[in-house]
């Protein structure tokens, strides 16, 4: 279980972005997070994944704080995959950075073998996004923070990506936090939804 306890965070002194925000995600649970631009959705996601350190409060994974080295059990998936890969690495090296997915797993995410010898700029956004999602599913990973990962995809590619991820998450009982502007998408995917505004998290029933 991933537990965020009374998190507070600010970039500018005196302007709190998050104030005493608590959130719990169980293994296998899909949680949705919505909010206006600049409300702090991505910041909350980064705090959960250990990219940022909260000023107050802590993130607890199964009664322990997040590890500072090794495979991070909470993975953050950013909106633009182009910025999340090394442009000078070929796709094979990018994909196998943390683990080596089997051929069947590549196929489930529609990652084609002939992409592997290419550089990331030679893949489209949707193709690269699928590579990035598969890369993040290393064996030690327990939770995913999907930060607007399907905004730039056309509807069909979107469904393909979510179906593959849903299947994988069910198999391994991954907990997923889906961050999106798209209420219809969150309704489809998540059992519980939250709205972030004025530094506070409110559940949507």
């Amino acid at each position: 279980m991933l537990n965020a306890h009374q998190l507070s965070f600010q970039f500018t002194a005196g302007v709190p972005l998050l104030q005493n925000v608590s959130l719990a995600i169980e293994a296998g649970q899909w949680v949705g997070l919505s909010g206006d631009s600049g409300a702090g959705k991505s910041t909350l996601g980064k705090l959960l994944a250990g990219y940022l350190t909260p000023h107050k409060g802590n993130v607890i994974l199964d009664n322990a704080t997040l590890p500072t080295s090794g495979v991070q059990p909470v993975q953050w998936l950013p909106q633009s995959p182009e910025l999340a890969v090394n442009p000078r690495w070929r796709v094979a090296k990018i994909l196998r950075e943390a683990w080596t997915p089997s051929e069947a797993q590549c196929q489930a995410f529609g990652v084609q073998p002939h992409w592997l010898s290419r550089f990331p700029h030679a893949l489209s956004g949707g193709e690269l996004q699928r590579v990035c999602v598969l890369r993040a599913l290393a064996p030690g990973v327990r939770f995913l923070v999907a930060d607007e990962i399907s905004t730039m995809l056309d509807p069909i590619t979107q469904v393909e990506l979510w179906q593959a991820l849903k299947q994988k998450a069910e198999q391994r009982r991954l907990g997923v936090l889906v961050i999106s502007h798209d209420t219809a998408l969150l309704k489809r995917l998540c059992t519980q939804r939250y709205h972030l505004s004025n530094a506070q998290l409110t559940p949507i029933s």
Binding site: P155, I156, V159, W162, Q163, D182, A184, R188
Partner: peptide, 10 residues
């Protein structure tokens, strides 16, 4: 049909 408002399936 792939839109989340609709079937959300292929």
């Amino acid at each position: 049909l792939a839109l989340p408002d609709n079937a959300f399936t292929l």
